[in-house]
C-alpha cells in the first residue's frame, strides 16, 4: 500500500499557510486585505507566512500601486497548485484509512 504521509507537504502544516493556499486554489489572484479578512489574521502574521510560501515558490506576490495606494496581491504558482493537490489527496487518504 502507498504511504499517504508521503504526499503531505510540511510547507502547508501551518494553519495560516494552509488557509492562504486554500483561498488561492479557487481564485486567480487575491488581494492582501481580502485574505486578511477571510483568515482573520494580523498584517504581519499574514505577510510573513506569505513570503515563506513565496520563497518555496508556492505562490507569487505582486506589489503595485493602484493610484497612490500600494496593493499587494497573491496567486498560486503551478508548483504550488500541484503540491497542494498532493497535500489534499494525502489528507483525504489519511481520513479514509483512519475512520
Amino acid at each position: 500500500m502507498k504511504n499517504p504521509i508521503k504526499g503531505l507537504h510540511k510547507e502547508f502544516e501551518n494553519r495560516i499557510k494552509l488557509g492562504i493556499m486554500s483561498i488561492l486554489m479557487v481564485n486567480d489572484t487575491v488581494d492582501f486585505n481580502e485574505i486578511k479578512d477571510v483568515l482573520e489574521v494580523t498584517d504581519g502574521n499574514l505577510a510573513s507566512h506569505a513570503s515563506a510560501l513565496e520563497k518555496k515558490k508556492m505562490i507569487t506576490i505582486t506589489k503595485k500601486f493602484i493610484g497612490k495606494k500600494p496593493n499587494t496581491s497573491y496567486a498560486a504558482t503551478d508548483k504550488g497548485r500541484q503540491a497542494f493537490t498532493e497535500h489534499l489527496t494525502a489528507l483525504e487518504a489519511l481520513v479514509k484509512n483512519n475512520p
Binding site: S22, I23, V26, V30, E34, V38, N98
Partner: peptide
Amino acid sequence: MRTAETDLREIKNLMERSSR
C-alpha cells in the same frame, strides 16, 4: 487537536467562503 479531518473541513470552508 488538529487532525487531517479538521484540516480538510477548514480547507473546504475557506474555498467556499473565498469564492462564493
